[in-house]
Design a protein around this nucleic acid. Structure first.
Lengths: 346, 346
DNA sequence: TTGTAGGCGTTATCAT
DNA sequence: ATGATAACGCCTACAA
């Protein structure tokens, strides 16, 4: 090693060492066609030897691309869902040579749109990834279109033709979960809905309704509570349900955080789980294995869905025309200790 | 609005509108001295009117800076601690005009160093932020020095003169927590240590020891278990402690995740909390409010510490000489339902 | 298949 | 206090 830290090698150094022009090096680096195998080998050898890495700033300046994709997400108390998306997106971006920049926003207080606009003008991105509920928040789509930013959404809504949409059948998985609870003998099954602005909330609720109907159980209004996907709302919904004259023997919440809140309230009242009441959630987030008892829940293949979303987003950035259809993803019911057979009163 | 999307305004447009040279605009944008107040006003008006934002790529290319700082963190099951660091770092970076790029690594399996090296050569950064335990992982410091990357560490270790170090007195907070438990009447107090590679583990353990000694309670070997900061290790440590001939009436775990594991095991055995056994953790992470009962724990001002760390890191990047000393941070014991008075056997 | 010239938007240098 | 001009490292056109 020389005494002075050698400054980073540039495309010129590589070209010189390989005995070609910089354009040829550029072609090799960017996997463009029209390079002879032999030339390519020479160039690659030079790149390795020098440890050359393209300068992102120069590349961005010249190509008008930033090689950056943004992840805009609702900043929740419980980070589990976003964490899975984040990790998966991070690793996929790394393999595709992109950077990921994060933008947490709050949709509930109406600041999201302006926040995103500011964010977009401040940091250059080539596209954005929208995990739920960003994918179905009104206004965001329009804003991104205005800004000329392609996006990939993780959402059940697939109306928009030209937009990358990755989804999983929430309605069906909710149907499956509810059916499972019914097979345990439960008939009075409470349901805690998710935030009304989230598409998943409705899908999950409809799955519940359909399962009850298909088993000949009447959907009872008093057993249905509004929640907002957070722990506290699960807690207060449970409070309502447990105050009922004839209380439910099982409660399904539209996500794990609310289900954890339900468990909390049930514990507060000294009821035994699952002997006196069964509880189930959605998403198979980390918290579902940490509660007592561990939660029965539904697992989405979030990591795979995210991988595909990122890949398709990059495809769309590089070749806006060809849109391969996304594969279908399916959920699975994960049975744990929070659900059990109904105690038939004698 | 014109039919064609006007391309983004450049420094030339601003200069033209303000009737000055681009260099003057540059001076204003970068808050450099030697600009008349009147000129500055003119330029600022032009900037506002055009909605001008400097192009990060161009700036990076010219200044040799990336305006990016890296956050290298141990990717844990429980994300709570890192999440707080992340959110705080994100908002501070935004106000300072930097981007934050994430790099999750695994220190336990020895891949971290190579991962970081690869990451550093792949994405240009001006500095990195090292939350625990990255700040006290051997080798990382040396690697960053070799790469010429300044760093700011959130760690109790403050040996290195030239390195930004932010810390909080873990030993003292552990002392305080243990003292609190002692005042509840407990004398047989189990302790679940953290991962031995983390400096905080030792500090917290020493605080525990010192508190016992200062109260005239003997430190008993059999009440001390090795854990690794994760849920599972807390669980198995609790299992050991509860198998003891004369079991402890309280258990302190060196972080919340392990404490949650302890709670889990206690529940498994059907023991009442806190009547039969008290449990406490560290860090006041989200999980501590989600367990049953909620955990007594210790809160660090993580967000403020992170803010200062980022700010000092950027200072170091821009002016490597002047190193202002960091302020001192203090922890606080948060009392919740998982601890209670010892049941004195009659 | 390969190479040459010009420009991307900024900061830095050196005048004035 | 302000300005002209040359880098910075790469990519896109266009030649050869």
């Amino acid at each position: 090693m020389s005494s002075k830290a050698a400054s980073k090698p540039t495309i010129f150094n590589v070209a010189e060492l390989a005995g070609v022009s910089i354009k040829t090096v550029s072609r090799v680096v960017n996997r463009e066609p029209n390079v002879q195998e032999k030339t390519r080998k020479k160039v690659e050898a030079a790149i390795d030897k020098l440890g050359y890495r393209p300068n992102v700033s120069a590349r961005g300046l010249s190509s008008k691309r930033a090689y950056v994709i943004g992840l805009i997400y609702e900043n929740p108390q419980e980070f589990s869902y976003v964490k899975d998306v984040l990790n998966s997106a991070l690793s996929e971006c790394e393999t595709l040579g992109y950077s990921l920049v994060l933008k947490p926003v709050t949709v509930t207080d109406g600041t999201a749109i302006e926040d995103i606009r500011k964010f977009a003008t401040q940091t250059r991105m080539d596209g954005v990834l929208l995990p739920p509920p960003m994918g179905d928040t009104p206004g965001i789509e329009a804003l991104l279109r205005e800004l000329g930013l392609p996006c990939a959404r993780l959402t059940p809504i697939s109306e928009l033709e030209d937009s990358v949409t990755i989804n999983c059948d929430d309605e069906e998985s909710s149907f499956d979960l509810t059916r499972y609870v019914i097979t345990l003998g439960h008939e009075r099954i409470g349901f805690v809905k998710g935030h009304p602005d989230h598409r998943a909330s409705h899908d999950r609720f409809h799955g519940y309704e359909r399962a009850l109907e298909s088993s000949g159980i009447e959907v009872e209004e008093s057993l249905i509570c509004q929640g907002y996907f957070d722990f506290e709302s699960g807690q207060s919904a449970a409070s309502e349900l447990l105050d009922l004259e004839e209380r439910p023997t099982a409660i399904i919440a539209a996500n794990d955080d609310m289900a954890a809140g339900v468990l909390h309230e049930v514990h507060e009242r000294g009821l035994a789980i699952p002997e006196e009441i069964s509880v189930a959630g959605f998403d198979d987030t980390v918290i579902s294995g940490r509660t007592w008892p561990p939660l029965t829940t539904v697992r989405q293949p979030i990591r795979e869905m995210t991988r595909v979303a990122v890949r398709q987003l990059v495809d769309k950035i590089t070749a806006p025309d060809s849109l391969e259809p996304a594969p279908e993803f399916h959920c699975a019911v994960i049975v744990r200790g929070s659900t059990g057979p109904r105690n038939t009163p004698k």
